[in-house]
Nucleic acid binder design. Sequence first.
DNA 1: CACGCCTCCTGTGCGC
DNA 2: TGCGCACAGGAGGCGT
Length: 267
Amino acid sequence: MPELPEVETVRRDLATIVVGKRVLGIRGAASAPLRRIRGLTFKNLRRRGKYLLATLGEFELIIHLGMSGRLLAAATIPPVPHVRLVIDLEGGVHLVFVDRRRFGRVSFVRRGDYAGSPTLARMGPEPLSAAFTKSAFGHQLRATKAPIKSLLLNQRLVAGIGNIYADEVLHRAGIHPDRRRLTPLEAGRLHRAIRSVLAAAIHHRGTSFSLHRDGLLPPGNFGRHLRVFQRAGQGCRKCGAPILKVRLARRSTYFCPKCQVRERDVM
DNA sequence: CACGCCTCCTGTGCGC
DNA sequence: TGCGCACAGGAGGCGT
């Protein structure tokens, strides 16, 4: 599930609960470095791309939810399978990391030491920040020849986009997912689409999938605003043509064959 | 270095 | 109904 809007939703839900609280203990599959978190206090809870970051003393807690990870704050440990880690906080609060597929990661490093997370170390700008400029984005898109969808997924040109929002922003921008070397016009449309789609998704608390509809978290409801993702065979909301599903970059890819043409724009 | 492919893990849903 | 297999929202690591 978790792409930028979902991770941001988790961050906002948990920040007010954990910030300022001291760690009383840690249980579960905690690495030796992670066990040093005991006794330290959460100074903040931040997000970078799809990563959650927290400063505690001289250290930084790095949490990536992977494909199936969830992070919950609760007074009692919920009776769900696949609880991997529990961080006990003062005030009777438990931070619970649940991850069915174990693709999630929790690490504890010296502040800013991202050597163990190359994607985080090389992360592109936050799409909703001023650092994400149309001109820099456009220049980078001219300089690389991979399919635009692969570039959106790899986190280096812009942070936080995954398979759902890659398809959604490409549809919004009217760009075929396999287009390469975008024109400045296309780059401009894509830049704008990235900002508007992600902002709207955050507003709706992200896209909720069955894994997350268990009553433990307020559900996201951006799902009903999706224009192409998991809508194969259904009509494009813009032109009515049936949405296609293909494999691209080893991922399911949904697009409208009429609104998103592969040919380069005529300028 | 850029790019593409394979892998990690577990559960679900589909076709036969 | 049962079985086997493809597939699932991510990113790290490797080979080319």
